[in-house]
Write a protein that binds this DNA or RNA. Structure first.
Lengths: 315, 315
DNA sequence: CGGTCAATATAGCCTTGCGTTATGAAAATC
DNA sequence: GATTTTCATAACGCAAGGCTATATTGACCG
């Protein structure tokens, strides 16, 4: 005996509101419609759901029991409607964001913390990867959005790229490092200190090699490699090591982690850190919210960096 | 955003079965129907429920969340179907039975115990009353069935009466009572002992008065009144009191309660204990089951009484 | 006891949802 | 790359259920 769950809903509404008219009003349908549905339901199960010829309506035993189930249906329906509403407004959902490791840890993660505070209903799933892999995972639907540095030409045709910051990398060291105050650096200066190497497949590493080659420092000593941001910072502040980091990371962490940048800019000037997402379909509302939130955060960050630079210039 | 609970059911089935075809099969509907409903649902909530172009089907976040609600609907639907099936077969429900107090306690309650054992899903609600009140409550729908003694003419036109046993009352006393062995009783014998009086409005009481008047014992001493069966038995077995009880009650309790009957039959010969229920509508299946069960029990009881009498005759 | 009011049932009509089968398209599997 | 499985689309018809209008029936009250 299969029963239409909508009929159970109607029954529950009638029982709970204590009348057919009120029940109909609560459900937003007309009284005759509800009346007929009720009659149909009674005919189908072959038993009266209400004591006949009694007003106010009194449910029978089976009527009461079925109304109980109807309430469960009603509850599920309300929960579903709530979910959909929250999903549509972007206040609930899942955002799967991928990005280059150091940048995610150093810059994006604090922004995600603020995003979580603003929209507690949205879950953010963070993962790490480099350009090629991130693009593949975007295509495969494994992630919704990627934060990574790209050149203009590097943007795939089927993707939308939203620039955020210039992809500037710098050589970082601890505050108080012997080289920190020096305006002019020679290959010899640099070769003298041990290096923390970013993973070989990372853009950071390629930038490092290229930059050092350009200033003539062909070989350099690597004392540590393979760590994620937390380890890198730990080693960096505990020694005279040098490493290469995105400028924004150094900027953000210069106070709390006591690091600074050498006055030597490296990296592609035409490479830009931005948000990459599939251009094909409209993203889920939560993803759009996340994207817009990150964009705003990065814009603010860009302004802070700019102000900091002009301040330094004046100083 | 109101969502049709049936659509949630379908979504749950698809997610749980891992495919549209299997889901359709599980729900007993065709694959295209399910496919279209799913497409409709997606259009309505404005978000994909499954990752597009992926097989096997992978639900999205919102799809998964809504499927959860769909499971709740499915569960309620199954519970409702189960309830209806059990109700229809009379294995669940509520029977509200009323009857004359002593008779209900002494005869019907043990039968209800057996009935409960046979159909554990059916709840029996027992209440007490005399003919007039019982009939009014049957009419008012407050009880489903009544057990009471009636004359043929006393059966209301709108009621069905199912005879069970002759409405025979006897004078009861403890076993070993001085009068128990006497074959012939005089008014003097009876007047000598104190009486336990049934409630003044009960048929037992009227029978008692009439019977005593007929044998000339006009006045009698009342030592106890107002108690229900348990109290009456207690007083009866603890003293030389007499009282009037339905013969079937004495018969059933003669062993366990050590009571017996004087050889003096009283009461209307044309009054019959039976089951009274409204003739208007078909009773609920559980009520019918109860009625039939009681009828069978009473028939068995009648046979036991008959056998006992013939045994006694032979002895 | 009968009139009045409010609530429920019925009637008639029409829209819409959803059932079906047939068939096309696409993804997975070998 | 062929095959098979699975999902989407199309076209059609039936029945459920929406509506308004109206009849009927308990409940309440003088």
């Amino acid at each position: 005996m299969k029963i239409d769950p909508r009929h159970l809903e109607i029954l529950a509404a009638i029982v709970d509101r204590g009348g057919l008219t009120e029940g109909a009003a609560a459900l937003g349908r007309s009284q005759p419609s509800v009346s007929r549905t009720l009659a149909q339901l009674e005919a189908r199960i072959g038993a009266p759901l209400f004591r006949p010829g009694r007003r106010p309506l009194q449910p029978t035993e089976i009527g009461l029991a079925l109304a109980e189930q109807g309430r469960a249906v009603l509850k599920a329906g309300r929960a579903a409607a709530e979910l959909v509403d929250r999903h549509r407004s972007g206040q609930a959902g899942l955002v799967r964001a991928g990005g280059t490791p150091i940048f995610m840890d150093g810059v994006v993660a604090p922004m995600i913390a603020r995003f979580n505070e603003a929209l507690p209903g949205v879950r953010v799933d963070q993962s790490y990867g480099y350009a090629e892999e991130l693009i593949a995972r975007l295509r495969g639907g494994a992630i919704d959005i990627a934060v990574l540095p790209l050149t203009r030409e590097g943007v795939p045709a089927d993707m939308a790229f939203r620039p955020l910051l210039p992809g500037l990398n710098v050589i970082a060291c601890r505050q108080g490092h012997p080289l920190a105050r020096r305006r002019l650096l020679t290959p010899g200066d640099i070769a003298h200190y041990p290096w923390i190497a970013p993973p070989p497949e990372s853009p950071l590493y390629r930038d490092l090699r290229r930059a050092l080659a350009r200033i003539g420092a062909e070989d350099f000593r690597i004392s540590f490699s393979g760590g994620s941001l937390a380890s890198v910072l730990s080693v960096l502040t505990g020694s005279d090591s040098l490493t290469v980091l995105p400028y924004s990371v150094v900027f953000l962490l210069r106070e709390t982690s006591r690091i600074t940048a050498l006055s030597l800019e490296i990296g592609h000037p035409e490479r830009i850190v931005g948000l990459l997402s599939p251009a094909t379909a409209e993203p889920a509302p939560a993803v759009r919210r996340f994207r817009d939130f990150l964009a705003a955060q990065f814009e603010a960050l860009g302004r802070r960096i700019f102000r900091h630079r002009t301040d330094q210039l004046w100083r």
